[in-house]
Design a protein around this nucleic acid. Sequence first.
DNA 1: AAAAAAC
Length: 761
Amino acid sequence: MPKNKKPRGGRPAANFEPRYGAKKTSFHDRHAGAREGARPERGGFRADAGERRSAPAAGGYDRRPGSRSAGHRGYRPAEAETGAPKQRWSAQERAGRDEARSIRNRAESGRRETPHHRDERPRFDERSERPRYNDRPTAGRRFDDRPRRDDRGAERPRFERDGQRPTGPGTYRDDRGAERPRFNRDERPQRDDRGFADRGDRAGARNERPRFDRGAERPRFNRDERPQRDDRAERPRFNDRGAERRRFDRDERPRRDDRGSDRARFNDASSAERPARSYDADRARRAFDRDRAQRSIEGGRDERSRPSTGGAYRTERPRRDDRTGGDSRPSRNDWNAKPKAAFEPTDDVVHERLEAKSVAAVEVDGVSFADLGLGSNIVETLANMGAASPFAIQAASIPAVLSGRDVLARGRTGSGKTIAFGAPLVENVLKSQAGKRREFGRSPRAIILAPTRELALQIDRTIQPIARSVGLFTTQIYGGVPQGRQVGALKKGVDIVIGTPGRVEDLINQGKLDLSDCRIAVLDEADHMCELGFVEPVQRILRHTADGSQKLLFSATLDREVAALVDEFLVDPAVYEVAGEDQDSSTIEHRVLVIEHRDKADILTSLVDREGKTLVFARTRAYADMLAEQFDDAGIPAVSLHGDLNQAKRTRNLERLTSGRVNVLVATDVAARGIHVDDIDLVVQADAPDEYKTYLHRSGRTGRAGRSGRVVTLITRQRQRRMTELLQRAEIDAPFENARLDDDLIEEIAGRVPTAADLTA
DNA sequence: AAAAAAC
């Protein structure tokens, strides 16, 4: 009976008037539909509702309206009765609306997918001179009409912040009851008069609420007299710390049991005895890798005819049935014998990267997509999307994918991986059905799996235009939305399925998705898809694909974790990475703020109170929600993104950041991987990640396609050592800086400090 | 230990 708790009556009649016309159907009709749907469930209304519903069909005799008294839950104003019959917002229409949304975004997303600024990319040393906030061309553009801090404050409605500010976890919810729905935000004042009688005033007043004002509450320290600042100069920065310091850390440090726990399940023996590798040694190894970089394009042209050698290779290995039981993974790794696809020996690696053939950016200069073997329609579509010429990872993997080989590819976040597998995949599917009629109800030829629904959607946004340019169809298969439309699309016949494992497997089991003709399977974020709990469904899905189907595994952090899949499914895979993708070539600036826990909430608010898009990562869903509320309360419009939200909210909240309606998104790791939003220039990690790969992916939400970006991680003193280790693994140099609430440091990171240039201007 | 992924 939870539906009955929804307040249906009690709203002023005016709010039920369809006076917003077609424009506002989404809110009004959706709720109207919900009411209709719910009514028959209530015993007292059943007869009534049934009669009423049948009335229009009977030709409009005097219909019995619901209760006429406002305040009764069945209340419907007379005017509503005389209007056209209410339409249900059917699942399909709703889906269509979502589709329309994604179409709207598609044009931008194409451009977003592909970097423009490769050549103008600032070098690392230039980045320190990045223009400050006021200097930036976009400064102040979006919020010029927004009341400035000073203008607000007097009439702030809710709680007084001058005395003390409710910050604790217990305070944020109580304070904002159910009567104030989340979506009533400053940026949408037009909603105020729409459905919730009690909220207009407050919402209006909310607009006046002052921004979080540090200056008023806490006296600023004079920088010079603050002793704490002075000793900062003495504090060893991370970069400066030599081996000596590290050794000191290590001696004193108890051996960490949980080190590498994420990999322990991969190979227990090796992880137990793995020595802690020095950062420098690992760097050296990478440099070595780079030196022996070979041209991948040659390598991609495969000498092997897939069916024959592939089959032979496969038969030596245990059949999948043999190994489902006992020890999950074979101890023997076939790869090690293969020159092209060898892993590092396990006892020698911290990163456990796959050894890969590198391709350097300079090698792909002057190479075009057409040169790589893509057809003219696809090349043209790519150009329209903003991808004029291939990036390194694309140049490396496209020929290999086209040749039909299994491919593993590692390319830094934002380096164009989606096109790297998407474009040749479309080409292959096209070739595989050349001459054949595209039949109604044909089963898909390719499947792309992603770890989150948002990512699946985003991949489709990139691939769909490419596929459509050659007459192929894609469809999204992911959970959280009614499956009707997805099944409908499959019935009509699609060529490329893009989805998340849960729903894909669900539809397979229901017999509504047939992968037996699926010749290509892609795993995006492949290492993540191989994590515990994820890998089993993925394996089951892959087993449904056609025998000998081509497998493509892509990720920014491709490592041995994918071995489980590689062993079972891949045949002599080509492995590619891009040379020179290290800290020096990164456009991301990393910093770690060591803070007192009690300052955390305020520091976070201060950090996100800025121009420009900010993505905040929290460890749990509840904390993500809490932070979003906290920022909102401080007058900084913010939304959250996590798995506790329904899909509509997830999509909507992400879209709000994309469109710029809010500048702050607080997310769990659901947004850590793959999600591309233009112009996120600051990533704040409210909680430090546990895994270096998570750090890399989270920070990869900024600095996309050569743009600059900043990542700041908040930690407490106790976490410094763990953080140091994590950064070493990620091969990231980041200064550790003590920060207090009113630190200029925070102003600087948020981009609010006027620079010398501003002052002279 | 959390998060993600299906009804």
